[in-house]
Design a protein around this nucleic acid. Sequence first.
DNA 1: CGCACTCTTGAAAGTTGTCAACTCTCGTGG
DNA 2: CCACGAGAGTTGACAACTTTCAAGAGTGCG
Lengths: 252, 252
Amino acid sequence: MADGDLLDRVLADPDLVPARADLVSRHDRKGGRLILVDGFAYQYRMLTSGRRQITAYLVPGDSYDLDAARENGSDHAVMALTSVRSVHLTTAEVAVLSLDHPSIDHAVMALTSVRSVHLTTAEVAVLSLDHPSIAEGLRLVGRIEEATLREWLVNIGGRPALERIAHLFCELDRRLHAVGLVDQDRFEMPITQYDLADTAGLSSVHVNRTIQELRRQGLIALTGRSLTILDRPSLQALADFQPRYLRLRASA
Amino acid sequence: MADGDLLDRVLADPDLVPARADLVSRHDRKGGRLILVDGFAYQYRMLTSGRRQITAYLVPGDSYDLDAARENGSDHAVMALTSVRSVHLTTAEVAVLSLDHPSIDHAVMALTSVRSVHLTTAEVAVLSLDHPSIAEGLRLVGRIEEATLREWLVNIGGRPALERIAHLFCELDRRLHAVGLVDQDRFEMPITQYDLADTAGLSSVHVNRTIQELRRQGLIALTGRSLTILDRPSLQALADFQPRYLRLRASA
DNA sequence: CGCACTCTTGAAAGTTGTCAACTCTCGTGG
DNA sequence: CCACGAGAGTTGACAACTTTCAAGAGTGCG
């Protein structure tokens, strides 16, 4: 069969994982190499104290461990935040698919609009290390993930609650905007305040009060699952948000 | 000239950088690709609030950006904590050196004793991406750095001050032990309490009180620049420290 | 309708930060 | 040799931030 067919077939038949189920569990030997087609997920780690620390979010178009660096088990797991459609790739599929997609512009991987992202990120997956430009692309993804991780460390270690939550919202805004999921400064954010608490290293009660302060300052509106950025410049200024680390295109 | 000669020459003539000077500055276009031969350094980021957040420590044997991923400027800088001897490698040197060191066991890069580390990590530097096993090695280094970054995020986001500082000491202990810099559960740690504060996301006053509590519990002794681990099992248990992320050999 | 989950609120307690001063060490210059 | 000054560590009192506990209100789904 043609490789394009395989790609189409793989994308056409994503796995469906319900909310709050592990997409990839800790010490998962099968490898979690996947692409998120639809829905939100997060990477997390449980402490022996019982506390949970979220270390990354996955939004549509994002991938996880495509280079199989964590194949032999890792120190964290990935859980679906909403019901999720994702494509899991086997080593065989990655290898087969890579044969006919030798040249993918890795700059494209920095994401543009949602439709192209799904395809583009998928294409990324079809690449093997045999193709230098592919290896290049995977390395870029890795660097963005690392820069984001460092940004989170700086955020949690260096900013008080209000700025911390504001920064998180700014990041989600830009990332979702890049994949076309922001409409009129408004986007769906299916993250509970408990999740935000375990992301920011705060208690859920304090997250709640912090969000109310952001509302009071007229920066955001948050009702149910829908977040609206009312004053992006002020919100970004408050958070000291510099989106360069995300390596997104100027617009989308 | 033979590659071995170049390697020797490079190692024999390290740069000397005084304490509190930048080894690599932000937006440094020259690229910071280096190996630390002697001394301590840290990677950090300044916030507009004036706060400094340390995101990583470099100890003897550690490298920085050998794969030149941050060549075009990054969001952070690297500063010498003590006076430092380091080897800076140019692109040309890395290229030349890579030609005759095709097969380096990447497992060795996980560090053993101090002498071999200096050589081994140096050898890592002499590798280019043309050699698959080298690329492999650089990727392993990257993964360890990323896992450490994630560990710090979990540490700062999820643990109170006492556990946080304890965890930091546990990590330094294991990393320095791996390069032979721990003698009788005691090692030199030229990190001020101000530095620790900006590492752990605490104030220096609170770091001071936290250290006193660790002393009071009989876990450590810290005088001047010398830290002694008095009760490693208890300290590690307190910190919930699992050294697996460092990927160190069993002993050294 | 009722359960489960999420959001919100108040009060009290605990943790951490700020400010300010004092001590200690160490290296330099008189 | 001693005085001095800079950097680092220590301490106390107080303020600010954040958590915990507990309870009630809102929301969506079977």
